[in-house]
Computed example of a mutant assay.
Amino acid sequence: MDITKYPQFELYLLTLNLLTLKDQLVPDGCNPRCINSTIINRAYFSSYLYCLLWLEDVKKFKPIPILQLGPDERISEHQQVRNALSNFGEIRMKSELLKLADLRRKADYDPFSDITSDEVTDAVRHMEKIFNHLKFE
């Protein structure tokens, strides 16, 4: 499989470009948080979608849509992906994705919290670890 032809990889490349250009992308009068939160969000979603594609292609795992689960067994597809990574022995990748999810929650749902340059760098580092570790056959 040539992963470079997939949207997940294109989103990965976009995220790297956003990081490189971040100082130029902040509109005048805006807080750098606007681009920092976007980079973290894109790092998470490119990684999540990449993990999902890897699980589907390599491990033949597909999460069950939450609405198809009964009320007592509802678990988000995002959590199912993290659990599947762990179940298939990719505990470290589960941890990387979970760290990204925590950063994304802060970036997306807590708009008045500061996002540090270290958090942006950490998010991209987590993303790169996932993309470099999970390989397609």
Rank of each mutant, 00 (worst) to 15 (best):
A101K: 12
A101S: 06
T116K: 10
A123N: 05
D122C: 02
A107H: 06
K99E: 14
S117E: 03
S113W: 15
D108Y: 10
L100G: 12
R105C: 10
R104N: 09
R125L: 12
L103K: 12
A101T: 13
A107K: 05
D118K: 13
D114I: 00
R104I: 08
S117I: 03
V120A: 03
P111Q: 02
Y109L: 15
D122V: 00
K99D: 09
T116I: 13
R125I: 15
H126T: 07
K99T: 15
I115S: 00
T116A: 12
L100I: 07
V124E: 13
A107W: 11
I115F: 01
S117M: 06
K106Y: 02
D114C: 01
I115R: 00
L100A: 11
V120M: 05
S117G: 03
I115E: 00
S113A: 15
F112R: 09
I115T: 00
D108C: 10
D114F: 00
D110E: 09
R125M: 15
D114A: 02
I115N: 00
V120E: 02
D118M: 03
F112L: 08
R104S: 05
F112I: 04
D122E: 08
L100E: 07
V124S: 08
K106Q: 13
F112W: 05
P111F: 02
L103G: 04
F112S: 04
F112E: 07
A101V: 06
P111I: 04
A107E: 07
D110M: 09
D108V: 10
V120I: 12
A107Q: 11
L100N: 13
D122K: 08
E119I: 02
A123Q: 04
A107T: 03
D122L: 06
H126P: 11
